[in-house]
Each structure stands twice: as structure tokens, then as C-alpha cells.
Amino acid sequence: MPGGARDLVVGPEIRIEGLSKAFGDTRAVDNVSFTAPPAEVTCFLGPNGAGKTTTLRILLGLVEPTSGTATIGGTSYGDLANPPDVVGAALEASSFHPGRSGRDHLRVYCTVAGYPDSRADEVLEVVGLGDAARRPVHAYSLGMRQRLGLATALLGDPPVLVLDEPANGLDPAGIAWLRRFLRGLASEGRTMLISSHALSEVQQIADRVVIVDHGRLVHEGLLDELAVESRVHVESPDAERFAKIVESAGATIRQSSGDALELRGLPATSVGRLALDNHVELHALETRRDGLEQVFFSLTGAEEDR
């Protein structure tokens, strides 16, 4: 468990292959394939309604795919001997009876999975709900419900975690807690697949990203590959002349307006040297990197909708 001494687990790989799901005429998931390897945090990204939840629910045996397969270590969820031993999942923010205490909720599933009741108290402590254990869930805040969902996922101390929008409803402190918590779980070697519609929430914990939009896979790869071409921003009263100079040196002008230039293809050091050599007066020279949000929007084409 996070914070405690724990042997490394090597989680099995999650593999989605050619997965499609049609609801009537709507193709919620359209031929999506990707893998989530062990010991890494794979973030499953896309705007709301992109098909993330449906994909996760198919993976977990709750929704029947129209075609394709979704397996965990080569086995489909429904064929796992005792699924909570292998996969912990937290889906919607509130799948609790409002009149049942958090502790009793967990104990119900301990009973089914064959874990001792004491396990319920352990996971409540792990997610910081120890004090609220005996309170009915209707008295829980949304953030507490998210934590109870996480606690449910952790009951079997599983090597695979599948979390759908775990940051929803958390305040900034809660999101910071969640990041540390998920990092800790991943560092123990687990396979982690975490969906989010907000890249900024998961940017700091993601190793890999899988991006879907309108049910289709848009991008799969390491977070670092997604990046993040640098641009150089220049301000100069002589911008027009300087644009020609840097272009002849191999840069491409991305945009220019008035005194400002934005260019790619040359590092800031070379741009500065060119300005000095050509006696161009500079008022600003800085390297800018595309934010991941911008990369995300350019991949999904969601920017126009905003």
C-alpha cells in the first residue's frame, strides 16, 4: 500500500483490440486498439462523450462490445477467477446506497470476494476515510465518495487499476492528494488505466497517453512523444526584416503580428546570435512550449467547440 513497505507487483497488461460499440446508430466506440503496460500510468483522454467510459465498461465486462476484444493479461474480465483479486475499478462517482455506511458498503464486497471484514477498515484508512467509516454515504461529499470508490477498487490489493474520471468533484487539495496517491500505486508496479477529460489533471502523473475523440483513437504513445515542439517568441521594432533573416537561416515563421514574431526550427540561442550579427534590436526573446492542452485540442479538434 502507498507509504508502506510493499513487494513490487508486476501487473498484467491491458489490451484493447479493434473494439467497437454501437448504441443504435451511434458508434460510441469505433475500432479502438491500445495497450496499457504494467508499472506505468496510462491516461485515457478525450472530451466528454468521446467513448472513454464505454471502452472501460467493456473492458470490465459491464457492457457487451459490438466487436473486438478487451483483455487483462490475455483474459477477459468475466473469465477471471476472482476479478477483485486482479482488477480494481472505480467508475461512476456514486455507486453506493445512500443509507449504507462506507464501511458496510465495503464489507458487502469483502464478503463476495472472500476478504476478511478488517480489509474494509484498512482501505478506508488508506484513502483517508477512517473517521467517516460508520457514517451513511448520503452524508459524504462528492470528494469522499470518490475516495470510497477508490477504496472499493483497492479491496483486493489488485495489480491492475481502472479508474474513470477519479478527479471529478475533487478540490485542488484533493487532486494533489490523488496525484500522490496514484503515483504511489503506480510505483509499486501496477498497471494503471485512468480516464480524464481534463489533461491538466493527469499531466503530472501520466507516463503514456491514449487519446480518443468521437469514439476513435486519435493518439497513443508516451507522454513525452506528445510534446511539445518548442517555439521561439521574439519582439522587435524591426520584426519584418528579422523575419526574412531567420527564414533564410532555416526557421519557419509561425505567426507574426506587429512587432511580435513566433518561429520554429531554430533554438533561441541561434535566434539571439542572428539578431546580434544583423544588428536587430530585440525587446523580447523567449522559448515557448505548446501546452499539452493545446496539443490535445489540435489532435481532437475540440478547440472550435470551446
Binding site: L60, G61, L62, Y77, G78, L80, P83, P84, A89, L91, E92, S94, S95, F96, H97, P98, Y109, V112, A113, T152
Partner: peptide, 14 residues
């Protein structure tokens, strides 16, 4: 009604 069908069928998919 309370969406506990999700954890129920996650714990016991049969």
C-alpha cells in the same frame, strides 16, 4: 437505482 449494480457485477461478473 443506486448504481450499486456496477460494484456488484464487477465483484461477481456471473
Amino acid at each position: 437505482v443506486h448504481q450499486t449494480a456496477t460494484p456488484t457485477f464487477l465483484t461477481m461478473p456471473r
